[in-house]
Nucleic acid binder design. Structure first.
Lengths: 341, 341
DNA sequence: TTGTAAGCGTTATCAC
DNA sequence: GTGATAACGCTTACAA
């Protein structure tokens, strides 16, 4: 039996027509029952519902997608799925989409534009209703393909008002400003910034720039420490803390480019007998799940990860309707005050 | 222009036929060029390649899926995307799939069989090549739908040899055994187990059973502590540590049902002046990313999360070929020895 | 190795 | 409100 099913394509399958026959209506009426129920008389709706339930009919979305040239499916390319940062965005995006009958096609790029391009190419083959990418940095071919497919494009985790796709993100520069101001307000004056050890993390550089600009504005000297490139962030954070505390005039506070680095810093500090925040305050970025579990718990800046996902889905859904869509969506980060600063 | 494109479905689109005309071959030959290149003469292959490049042709997988009644797409339902546990599985699964030209449809169930059912129903509409679920606990309707669709089903993060779907998982019972034995070997005798505060985490109960059985076998008395249900795991862990250390004969070692609980325990212990592992050793489960960042760093048992994802994809791909597929895949957990025990 | 013809299951279009 | 008919872009089946 299972053999037979596979042999002849679609043999014995319950289709729109099967349902139509059972309900004694035409196929298109069943189609309307699913897509524009208002246009079907209550009486027939009931007959159709009965037939659907009895037959266990599952609409073939592939056929629907082919016929309508646009499927209820949305592609998302994210740098990496298992990192602490993007998971919430995926979660919020997927859940919101699902609630409205759309499905998520997911792939990861590992920050490579080539991998992003190949994911986009594959996605386009499924006639997605829209595409969601991370950041504004894509290959030419990617941009061209999407332009030709003529579907809504949404760029997340970045904010470039000058670009035409829908933007959903926040200002990394502002994160640097916020961190520096916060520490300054608390009375700290010698404030250092530790860069990320991962090459290609351009957003982290913007946070640094926000920090540097603020320091200068406050009449203070920026001090940027760059750990050895390629080191695991946790290790890089340790290294940075050791190096900074061993320097002639150690900083009174350190802003780390992200929470992984900060966790390393915290640990190295404790091991070296540096009191945190007494001898040196620490601020991170990301509000990774462990931030509250560290000792001392980590003061950090929390990006709107979940919100980005939810809003991206909302904009996707809107852009499929007649509604005018808000193209620029600047969200805010929140400083979470804990023990480390 | 963009308006026009949307009006008439597929107007001006580059199709297999466009390519065929350009390359002066028939459409089916172009189809073969993509699916069975060996059956196309080198000469025509080149002509086709040129046409594809020139036109920027992207195969319409929706049409292909409809025609062949099986798309190069695989659905995965995971309890939650942003938790520390399943993210690696998704990552491994997705990457492996992508490498072989398959795409991932993802949805989350939040441990609800109803949500799982609705995800499966939506997935089936896309004629997936296979379906991957978590655990063995599904609604009747879910099982029925999948059986009727007659596609490979893979159950992950669980291991039920008696069930017919392909199984990829590990023994939670064995995790409990391993933890208890490890502590016993280290000389600890009063060993407690702290349950998860989340109702419905049945796997955690199996770990507890493994612990209890081992204790009995070793001639020791099992001591299970159940935190208040519904408490956040981190808080539950704190509560458990406080309660246990305040008891008449505090344990010398504690096994926590997962690393979140253990992190709470560690923190509460430190705050209360309990030396870890001196006064009380701690073992967790999960090897969450923060395990090595805690102080003391957390000894824990690491489940093969990434491996499950990769293997699931491998089995999916195999089951689409003629190959006989290994139905039972029992993986192993690894105890990661750090400072806490 | 290559081609022709006939679907796959749905929706757009137009007519009633 | 309802239906007949013709796509949608590809692959299967069969023939040459």
């Amino acid at each position: 039996m299972s053999e037979d099913k596979r042999k002849r394509r679609g043999a014995g399958r319950v289709t729109l027509n099967t349902v139509a026959r059972h309900a004694q209506v035409s196929a298109i009426t069943v189609s309307r029952y699913f897509n524009q129920p208002d246009q079907v008389s209550p009486e027939r709706r009931e007959r159709i519902k009965a037939a659907v339930d009895e037959l266990g009919y599952v609409p073939n979305l592939v056929a629907g997608g082919l016929a309508s040239a646009r499927g209820r499916i949305v592609g998302m390319v994210i740098p990496n799925i298992s990192g602490p940062i993007f998971a919430s965005t995926i979660q919020g995006f997927s859940d919101t989409l699902n609630r409205h009958g759309y499905q998520l096609l997911l792939a990861s790029s590992y920050f490579s534009v080539e991998q992003e391009e190949s994911a986009v190419r594959a996605f386009l083959g499924w006639s997605p209703a829209a595409l969601v990418l991370t950041s504004h940095f894509h290959s030419e071919a990617t941009e061209k393909m999407i332009a030709e497919a003529d579907i809504p494009l949404i760029e997340t985790w970045d904010y470039r008002p000058e670009r035409s796709p829908i933007q959903i993100g926040f200002s990394h520069f502002q994160v640097g400003v916020t961190a520096a101001r916060y520490l300054h307000d608390k009375g700290y004056r010698r404030i250092a910034f530790v860069q990320n050890s991962a090459a290609g993390d351009f957003s982290a550089l913007e946070r640094r720039d926000g920090y540097s600009a603020t320091m200068t504005e406050l009449g203070l000297e920026p001090q940027v420490y760059a750990p050895q490139e390629g080191l695991a962030p946790f290790e890089a954070g340790k290294q940075a803390m050791q190096a900074l505390m061993a320097s002639e005039r150690p900083p009174q506070a350190i802003i780390f480019a992200n929470d992984n680095l900060a966790a390393g810093g915290l640990l190295a500090g404790q091991r070296a007998g540096v009191k945190i925040p007494g001898d040196c305050a620490v601020v991170g970025f990301g509000d990774y799940p462990f931030a509250e579990m560290l000792m001392p718990s980590l003061t950090t800046i929390k990006p709107p990860a979940l919100e980005i996902g939810v809003l991206a889905a909302t904009r996707v859904l809107e852009s499929l309707g007649e509604v005018e869509v808000e193209r620029l969506n600047l969200l805010e980060c929140r400083l979470i005050e804990r023990e480390s600063a």
